[in-house]
Amino acid sequence: MALSVDLANLALLGQIAVNSSTAVLLASLGEIVTERSGVLNLGLEGMLLLGALAGFAVGAATGDPAAALGAAAFAGALAALAHGFFAITLGANQVLSGLALSLLGAGLTGVLGRDLLGAPGLVLAAIPLPRLSAIPVLGPALFNQPPLTYLALALAPLLWWVLGRTRLGLLIRACGENAGAAYASGVPVRMVRYGCTCFGGALCGLGGAFLSLSYTPGWKEGMSAGQGWIAIAMVIFALWKPLRALFGSLLFGALIAAQFLMQTAGVQWAPVWLLRAMPYLLTIIVLTLVHASPRLRRRSGPPANLGRFFRPEG
């Protein structure tokens, strides 16, 4: 069967691509902010699930989108706060604490969400923006999306601006690059780190809510399906830069859309496992390329104090 890629088809694929990138984009943007402040939080997978469950449960109970999203963000931030307590206050190993958070999130949501399996609930459907969504191809792709997708798309340039162009961004970067110097300059390093970690958790929780309220409405155990890990790879792929995370997440979405296209068209250009492995492969390729170029290496490494505990006294 010949594959017809007409305009309508392309618009649909674009819509799927952008839509599919949302959770990963939100989670990776949050993690970028967290890591730029010097805290490594590998608990994204757990926070996605907690956000998904909290958002779905509150949405089903109240029917109020604002309450649902607020609950999801709160759940994510609360989980991140726990990680922050271990990482920032106690100085525990951040890799272990983050992994524990991922396991905790998976286990906890599995237990708590048992009664909600398959239950009907709130759905945050796509809201086409007047006029803009009428633009051919780009319109449906970018401007016929659920609210959280708009939020994610808008956040990427906003965070780029905040991190690179504002004093708040300077403080965050200073905490991640050299906490001692920042502290000596009067920056409340631990407060900044707590703030960034919780912000990252809140975004991740919203990413989870997107999954359970818009992407595949309803609660399913383990419904994040590894997107949290993809988001961690995405942070590295993006070299800790929000706009590159936008690009990378859209690329990830395009891979999902390609899988979708292959299924509907019944054609197989490449094995599905290869498409699934692509985000990780691309991350390794980007890391290798960056390492090979001294110019890139100097400007694109991880924050110098990433994952390093800072104690003010001594």
Partner: peptide, 22 residues
């Protein structure tokens, strides 16, 4: 051991220290 943020420029380090604009 200097407490400068190596990834930032001189002007940025200065702004970080004194709270002024870059």
């Amino acid at each position: 051991r200097f407490s400068l943020v190596e990834a930032l420029t001189g002007a940025e380090n200065l702004a970080l220290a004194d709270g002024g604009r870059v």
